[in-house]
Amino acid sequence: MPKILVIEDDADMVTALRMPLEATGYEVVAAATGEEGLQKVKEEVPDLIILDVMMESTTAGFQVSLELRSPAADSEYAAYRNIPILMLTAIHTTTSLRFGPDEAYLPVDDFVDKPVDPDVLLKKVGALVGQAQGDDLPA
């Protein structure tokens, strides 16, 4: 059962995400702050991270993603660099964000708009989890 770590400070939003994910058979663990999230990445080693763009500060979500994807050789998260990240955001804030494979941009794999549509969420989660697990298969 793939494990998903939801890093989100709003407990109701966690409920909204947990509902469709658990009903589809994912295991969901949650963290309420960026710091707790980073801790849980190490403890739980999830298959996917769903990250809220705004938590305790407007940049907390960005900081978590930058920390996790740090290219530094001695990064304490080097072992978790390949865990896919799905960022939760709102379309109006997305328009001024830059993201993509380029390291200079926000290092996340995909976005889900708030309010979350459960079908869109499940489609994106399925794609990212499948992709990551596919990468691990021998060629």
Binding site: A16, M19, P20, A90, P115, D117
Partner: peptide
């Protein structure tokens, strides 16, 4: 900016839950 976040956030959370309920989850 603060008003944006504070006003959008509860609406988005409520809507996310309602959509989950509507889809039968």
């Amino acid at each position: 900016r603060v008003a944006t976040h504070e006003l959008r956030s509860p609406v988005a959370v409520a809507q996310s839950m309602v959509r989950g309920v509507l889809k039968g989850y």
